[in-house]
Structure formats: C-alpha cells, structure tokens
Write a protein that binds this DNA or RNA. Structure first.
Lengths: 102, 102
DNA sequence: CTCGAATATACCTCGATAGGAATATACCGG
DNA sequence: CCGGTATATTCCTATCGAGGTATATTCGAG
C-alpha cells in the first residue's frame, strides 16, 4: 500500500530530492548519507509503487519523480478535508497558487 | 510520525468508521472484527497522534474524529500536487464541492 | 577482453509492531 | 458493597522491514 511506502522517512527524503531534479543513484546515496545498496532498495520500493521512473544512461541510472500515484492519497484525504478547521481557506489558497501558474 | 499511524489499514478503517459518526469501543470492535484489546491499542495510537478524541460517558468511551492533523499530510502533498497530471481539474472539483456546502 | 565504475541483488541481523490471551481498572445498577 | 459491563494495560510471540556487508551484474574505456 502506498501509505506504507511513504511511511518511511528516507523514502520521503528521496522524493523531496527528486522534486528538485532527477538524480543518479550515487548522488542520492551521497546526499542521504546511506550506503548504496540501501539507497537502491528504497528506490526499488518507490519504483514498484510507481512513484519514480528510471532513465538509463550507460551505467548511470537517472531516477525521476512520478507524482501521479500521490493522487490516491489526495483522494483518501477528500472526505476528511471538508472537516478540518480552516480547510476552505487552505484549499482556496492552493487553488489560487495553481491559478497563478496558468 | 503521522504517516506511520496511517500506514496501518485497520487504523484507516477506524477513521473511516468515525467519519460516519462517533462510536464506542465495543461497536468499533464488532464492526472491525478485532478483539477488544486490539481495538483499544489502535485507538491509543490514533489518540496520541491527535486524530481521535474521547468523550467519556459512564463506562462507555465515545471516540470521535479529529481530522486536523491530516492537514500535515495535505501540506506535504502540496509541492507534488502541482506536478501530477490533471491536478488543476481535480483541485477545482474539490473546491466546487466545498463551495456548494456554504 | 579486461578493468573499473555504477547499480542491483542476496543474505543476515536487529528492532519495531500487530495480534492475541490474560489481567487490571473504572463505573453503573441493585 | 457486589457483580457485571466496558475499556485499558500487560505480556508474549511471530512477522516484517530497514540497514549493513558481500557479491553479482552491466556497461564503457582502453
């Protein structure tokens, strides 16, 4: 389940790094302070969840973000969103941000 | 971390049940098909995460939803939301729903 | 074809946690 | 005060997953 994938702090850090730009495994390993196999294993989980995609370039693997599955989380939040205080304001702020981007 | 709390399927089911209306522990136990201690344990985790609140009525404990902490998830999603395909439409659909409620 | 670089996989260990059974606690009715 | 009901806590066990080390794989350079 997607929530399990995101429950891991290191994996969220990886997503955050990929938010910036695609990274090869070595760079992720360095920035995370993990061992290389550790990084690869998290990347595998993220890949299987459809949250990242690989672009092969010789021996280098460029990992890039695939945010689409996160929509599932957003959907799950929907019935709760209308309940929490100030939700309307926050949601409108979101939409305003998006409108600006057009 | 909040994601860990939500990673547990049973806990998400509890939240779903509480979305409907507050429940005493016994009812939750019955509807979940768990043992009573099992239910109590999950409720404790949810309580410590601030996701539920208890209203004591004699020996009965009515658990009710506190959706506020879920805003944290929503905040985390924000930078990703603008990336996934169709996000604008979905977000607008959300907002339309909310507008209808006013 | 060989060497080295970049990444993936296999295997092991350890800590966290869900689940159950037994027990403790709190509170009402009588 | 006593018995029973509703819930919480404790203890135990089995499972899962993160992290590490060692090893396999793949590919380019020369």
């Amino acid at each position: 389940m997607l929530f399990d994938v995101l429950a891991e702090p290191t994996r969220r850090r990886i997503l955050d790094l990929l938010l910036e730009r695609p990274h090869p495994v070595g760079e992720l390993t360095a920035r995370l302070g993990l061992t290389q196999p550790g990084t690869s294993k998290h990347l595998r989980v993220l890949r299987e969840a459809g949250l990242v995609q690989v672009r092969i370039d010789a021996q280098r693997r460029w990992y890039e973000l695939c945010p689409a599955p996160l929509a599932e989380i957003d959907t799950w939040l929907t019935p709760y969103r209308r309940l929490w205080a100030g939700s309307l304001d926050r949601l409108e702020a979101h939409l305003d941000t998006m409108e600006d981007d057009r």
